[in-house]
Amino acid sequence: MDIVLRATLMFFILYVLLRVLGKRELSQMTPFELVTLIVLGDLIQQGVTHNDFSLTGAVLAITTFAFWGLAMSWGSYVSPRLEKLFEGEPRVIIRHGELLRDNLRRDRLTRAEVESEMRLAGIARIAEVDWAILETNGKISFIGRSAGDDSAQRDDDGPV
């Protein structure tokens, strides 16, 4: 039972840690950060199983992590509130060609990072973007402006 309790505690500590890291950090990891995350896995294993190197202890720890992962996934599926809590929400970072600096600051994104993603998407200038949305998986979705966009009616409440 001790392993199950420690695995549960470590699961939620790891969950909070990954949420604090932010969306962009996880999607653009450097090789060093990847190695650090792998080492973190070993440290978690040591903290969960302590000195129990038995197959039973490993199975209990893995099963506990899998259970909580499945429980959170199921909770996200059945409850929009839990989905918002567990998964986060997409955030608009460009609206009608204007960079929303407060939203960038919340996710610790720089203008240079956004411009880099724009170039990868084949977009030359921020003015060409109607909407840019930082998705919950850390990717940025761009919706370009159409040729007659200046005279078109706009939805100022945000994307649907």
Results as ranks from 00 to 15, higher is better:
L40M: 13
T49Y: 05
M10Q: 03
F11H: 06
D52S: 09
I13F: 07
L26K: 06
K23I: 04
L18E: 08
V35F: 09
L26N: 06
V16M: 10
G41N: 05
D52R: 05
L21D: 02
N51T: 13
T49M: 09
I38Q: 01
V20Y: 04
E33H: 12
Y15T: 08
G41C: 05
V39H: 05
V16A: 14
F32M: 15
M29H: 01
L40D: 04
L9C: 12
K23T: 05
P31W: 02
Q46R: 13
T49G: 01
E33G: 07
F11W: 06
N51E: 13
L21K: 04
D42F: 10
Q28G: 12
V35C: 05
L34M: 15
V16Y: 08
D42Y: 10
L26C: 01
T30M: 05
E33A: 09
Q45C: 03
L40Q: 05
R24W: 12
T49S: 06
L43H: 06
I44P: 00
F32T: 15
I44A: 06
F32N: 11
V20I: 13
F12P: 01
L43W: 06
L18C: 07
T49Q: 08
T36K: 09
L37P: 02
L9Y: 10
D42V: 10
V16I: 14
H50G: 09
N51K: 10
I38R: 00
H50K: 11
Q28E: 11
S27A: 15
R24F: 10
I13M: 05
L17P: 03
T36Y: 12
F12C: 01
T49C: 07
R24M: 06
L9H: 01
I38P: 01
H50F: 11
L37I: 12
E33Y: 09
I44Y: 00
L18I: 02
F11A: 07
G22W: 02
F32P: 04
L17K: 08
F11C: 07
Q46I: 14
G41V: 02
E33S: 08
T30A: 09
L43A: 10
M29R: 13
Q46G: 13
L14R: 00
F11D: 06
L17W: 12
L21F: 07
I44Q: 00
E25F: 15
L43M: 10
I13C: 04
T30L: 08
H50Y: 11
I44V: 12
H50E: 11
I38C: 06
R24E: 06
M29P: 02
E25M: 15
M29N: 02
S27F: 13
F32R: 15
T49L: 07
L18A: 08
F11M: 07
G47E: 11
T36I: 15
F12G: 02
G22M: 02
F12E: 02
V35Q: 01
R19K: 15
I38E: 00
G22T: 01
D42T: 11
